[in-house]
Nucleic acid binder design. Structure first.
Length: 904
RNA sequence: GGGCGCAUAGCUCAGUUGGCCAGAGCAUCCGGCUUACAACCGGAAGGUCGCAGGUUCGAGCCCUGCUGCGCCCACCA
């Protein structure tokens, strides 16, 4: 992509039936006085007359300070304000991704948020009122972690609230001050409020046309109420349930983790070959990378067809060191060519162990605690004196240390065969954690998402097909994810800063919670905090007392809240009038990495709660790669913050770079493109200044004045451009819309402006008027075509000669531009440009100034006639004394240029 | 192991149902203060379209296989 100064002779581009909406009736929009207050309507806009127009063109246009100037003006004028009196079909609603404010902004945000803004601005100019809210994701672990580090505190729920608490003046990360949950949450809110201001400042600077009166935070009251309400309804409908089950567990954060939050990382480890014993037989050797779990072993397993172990099935063997009797089982998942072909099943080494445990109905023998350490008491079966003694050496140790000690024990007992063999293998991690996950049995809340239910899964697959995806192949990721689900959605987290489950449990006479009989609040009471509020019918004194109650201590997964972003932003159950106007939304823009989380979970919630898709369309942005083509991420330390780039190249330049990246395509951080964007912005300033100063305030904008074929040709080419750009935007292909517009614009500057310059200065003739009118019409259309991409510079040049904001002006209609072209042939401009270029080339090769006179130009070929129509303009622009045009059969245009004799 | 995507000039990328010598910008080189723009303008050079087959009158584009890169998924003893 990029400007083209060398477009081929124009072929008339054909219209695409259906791709471009029918033009609205009414006066041509290039006649439009721009920017009625809001929601432009062609029918109410009167043609501008010469009397009410004055040009305010600066002598030296510049990009400096342009952002600050227009950000303020837009804020005051409210151009981006959502008009909630409009009906659904007049509204375009966007389910904006709430950025995690506790993270730092990086250039990738600027990239993908620009993509959304392009759509918002286009739709607004099409006459829609755009619902474009901004949310802040200040929920969850990243915020907790940041608050801990920033203030030097840690949450201790057992501490009472201290209303006068203030954090240490100088945080000491090694000695974090314990604070109550409520104090901790207050600090979270304080810090995120500051972070939000920084984000909003950058977004405004980038030119996002967000309606800043519609913001929400995923931790605010409305979001918490929505998350709790949706949960209670899931519970009532049987879509949410509690279960005690083996759970993937992060020992650092001490919380359960959902399938969607896993990632594999390569870790080094070692195979340990270990002997199990049986009476009157050879030892059975297994290989394991986790010898510390031998005490947790409940069985060995081999494939049913594996003849090596066929005679062992149904018998038992004794574990080394602990001497625990475990059965040998057959299961199809055991793979004969892995290790020795027979594996030990533990409580629980990995997810496969869970499968075997469940399907083979094995006992449990848990030894790893929530803190990732070997628990104090040995599990059932580890009973003998010697076994308990050995176990005591492991108790309290981390799994890492326990492994080393276990190897010593095995060596001492002679059950370790050879040395450990180093290996690397993928290990499951929580995506935000840095220790491998353990599998621990815990009580958790789940939402049915099709992971264990074919009917729900099929329904969600159908939703995926109903949704329009841009680019289309992203749907495949969704389908694979849904098809591959193996459990329901685990939504509870054992953390503090998040939306609490709105649930209490009665305590029986012994003080044990009755989990199967939870106490639920009224919806009208939401949001509630069960750890500080008592349920109806109880007083706070009875908390924790036998016969009293306790609150559910857990909070919801962050996705349990953000999966409701369309409902939260749209006013679900809070502002039903608004909700009916914006939901289901038109667009969900987001990154490809969170299809399995955010996109999927949002589809699940809307399906369960609203029985519909949450939006019609999704637009998936690609990654930003650093110049070495590596994915930019915080962990890689290669992130680039946007502010510096915004200042160096201008916001429009950054947007230009972002707009040149297609949806779904990874894009390199390319300062070259930003430079090009800056150059384009400056060119728009200068070309606009020139066209306005040449045309003068008195020039007519009535297309009837456009009489010269060259002018009509230019407008016809412009009409083609508008048609292409419009079709591209309708197809969410902003890159193409930009490329078409930009290409036309550079040809307009390089060729058309040069060709008509002299004629346009001729104040008296009709031919001069034709050029001046064409310039104004083209300028008006071009400024609007660029407006979504380069909102600052477009607004700046628009303000020189129009009233109101270009962003409230009507998107140009191809049909109306075409009408102004009055049957013009784009080939005339193409041919004239080609001749002009040939003249320039001759001068360049002769090392002459472009001002040099040319003695004669002879043009031959099929298009010589078309070029000849613009003879006068070519002669003036090329400074040619004589011109001849000889139409012939040759398809190629042949241009002979005779330079003056004796180039002095 | 399965899947998705990508591979075109030194770099970043266009190339829309297959159709005349494959395009642009950046970088490079040459030239020019041409009164909109010297942070500018004009011009030039630069490519066996990843490799190998196939279909076709014709393939960057369609089919098959292969290679390399990125990402996703997978029960990874």
């Amino acid at each position: 992509m990029g400007p083209s100064c060398h477009g081929r002779p124009g072929r008339a581009r054909r219209g695409r039936p259906g791709a471009v909406p029918d033009p609205a009736p009414g006066p041509a929009p290039y006649l439009a006085k721009g920017g009625s207050e809001q929601a432009p309507d062609a029918n109410t806009i009167a043609p501008m007359t010469n009397r009410d127009r004055s040009f305010r063109v600066p002598d030296k246009p510049s990009l400096d300070g342009i952002e600050a100037k227009w950000v303020d003006v837009w804020d005051e004028s409210g151009v981006y304000r959502f008009d909630r009196t409009k009906t659904r079909d007049e509204i375009y609603s966007i389910d904006t991704p709430p950025p995690t404010v506790s993270g730092s902004l990086h250039i990738g945000h600027a990239f993908s948020y620009t993509h959304t803004d392009l759509v918002a601005r286009y739709q607004r100019m099409r006459g829609k009122t755009v619902f474009y809210p901004m949310g802040w994701d200040d929920n969850g672990l990243p915020t907790e972690r940041r608050v801990q580090n920033y203030y030097g505190v840690r949450c201790d729920p057992s501490i009472p609230y201290d209303p006068d608490f203030s954090p240490p003046a100088k945080p000491d990360p090694k000695r974090q001050v314990p604070v109550s949950r409520r104090n901790f949450i207050e600090l979270c809110e304080r810090l995120t409020a500051e972070d939000e201001k920084v984000f909003e400042g950058v977004w405004r600077r980038l030119g996002l046309s967000v309606d800043w009166s519609h913001t929400y935070a995923t931790i605010d009251d409305g979001s918490r109420a929505a998350a709790q309400r949706a949960f209670l309804r899931n519970l009532k409908r049987g879509e949410a349930y509690m279960a005690e089950a083996p759970t993937l567990w992060d020992v650092t954060f001490r919380t359960a983790v959902a399938q969607a939050e896993l990632e594999d990382r390569e870790r080094t480890g070692a195979y340990h070959k270990i002997a199990f014993h049986r009476d009157g037989g050879e030892p059975v050797h297994i290989e394991t990378t986790r010898p510390e779990l031998i005490a947790a072993c409940v069985a060995l397993v081999a494939h049913p067809d594996d003849e090596r172990y066929a005679d062992l099935f149904g018998s038992t063997v004794r574990s080394p060191v602990f001497g625990v009797e475990v059965p040998v089982k057959a299961h199809r998942l055991a793979e004969p060519d892995k290790g020795t072909g027979i594996a030990m099943i533990c409580t629980f080494g990995d997810i496969t162990d869970v499968t075997w445990w469940r399907e083979l109905q094995l006992p449990t023998r848990p030894i790893v605690g929530w803190d990732g350490r070997i628990i104090a008491d040995p599990p059932p079966g580890v009973d003998s004196e010697a076994a308990r003694e050995a176990y005591a050496k492991l108790a309290g140790a981390t799994v890492h240390t326990a492994r080393e000690r276990m190897v010593e024990l095995l060596r001492a007992s002679g059950d370790m065969v050879g040395d450990p063999v180093p290996t690397t293998r993928p290990v499951k991690f929580y995506e935000k954690g840095d220790k491998p996950l353990e599998v621990v049995t815990t009580r958790q809340w789940y939402i049915r998402n099709g992971g264990r239910d074919a009917e729900i899964r099929d329904r969600l697959l159908a939703r995926g097909r109903e949704l329009q995806w841009h680019p289309g192949h992203m749907r495949t990721r969704y389908e694979h994810w849904v098809e591959g689900l193996n459990s329901d959605w685990l939504i509870s987290r054992q953390r503090f800063f998040g939306v609490p489950f709105p649930v209490w449990y009665p305590l029986d006479e012994a003080g044990n919670p009755r989990y199967d009989d939870p106490i639920l609040p009224e919806e009208s009471a939401l949001p509630i905090d069960p750890s500080s509020q008592a349920p109806a019918g109880y007083t706070e004194e009875r908390r924790g007392e036998p016969g009293g109650f306790i609150g559910d201590p857990d909070v919801m997964d962050t996705w349990a809240t953000s999966s409701l972003s369309p409902q939260i932003a749209g006013g679900w159950e809070r502002d039903e009038d608004l909700f009916s106007r914006v939901f289901p939304m038109d667009l969900r823009p987001q990154g490809q990495d969170i299809i399995r989380t955010w996109l999927f979970s949002t589809v699940v919630r809307a399906d369960l709660e609203n029985g519909t898709l949450p939006w019609r369309t999704t637009a998936i942005s690609g990654w930003i790669l650093d110049p070495d083509r590596k994915k930019m991420s915080k962990s890689k330390g290669n992130v680039v913050t946007p502010l510096d780039l915004l200042e160096r190249y201008s916001s429009d330049a950054i947007r230009y770079w972002a707009a040149s990246g297609r949806l779904g395509t990874d894009t390199a951080l390319d300062e070259g493109q930003m430079k090009v964007g800056r150059r384009l912005s400056i060119k728009i300033l200068n070309a606009s200044k020139f066209a306005l100063s040449v045309a003068g305030e008195n020039a007519s904008e009535d297309p009837a004045a456009v009489t010269r074929p060259l002018d009509r040709a230019m407008l016809a080419a412009l009409a083609d451009t508008v048609e292409d750009a419009t079709a591209a935007f309708e197809a969410y292909d902003h890159t193409r819309a930009l490329e078409r517009t930009e290409r036309f614009f550079w040809e307009f500057c390089d060729d058309y402006l040069e060709l008509v310059k002299a004629r346009a200065y001729d104040a008296d003739s009709a031919d001069g008027a034709s050029a001046r009118t064409s310039l104004l019409i083209a300028l008006s259309v071009l400024q609007r075509l660029f407006a979504p991409f380069l909102p600052f510079v477009a607004e700046e040049v628009w303000s020189w000669w129009r009233e109101g904001s270009v962003h409230a002006a009507r998107w140009p209609e191809a049909a109306e531009v075409r009408a102004a072209a009055q049957g013009g042939d784009p080939g005339v401009l193409a041919a004239a440009s080609e001749v002009l270029r040939a003249v320039r080339k001759a001068k360049s090769e002769a090392k002459l100034s472009m001002r040099a006179e040319v003695a004669a130009v002879v043009v031959r070929g099929k298009n010589a006639g078309a070029a000849g129509v613009a003879e006068g303009d070519i002669a003036a622009a090329g400074r040619a004394a004589s011109l001849e045009f000889h139409p012939g059969d040759e398809t190629e245009l042949a241009v002979e240029v005779t330079l003056p004799e004796a180039a002095e």
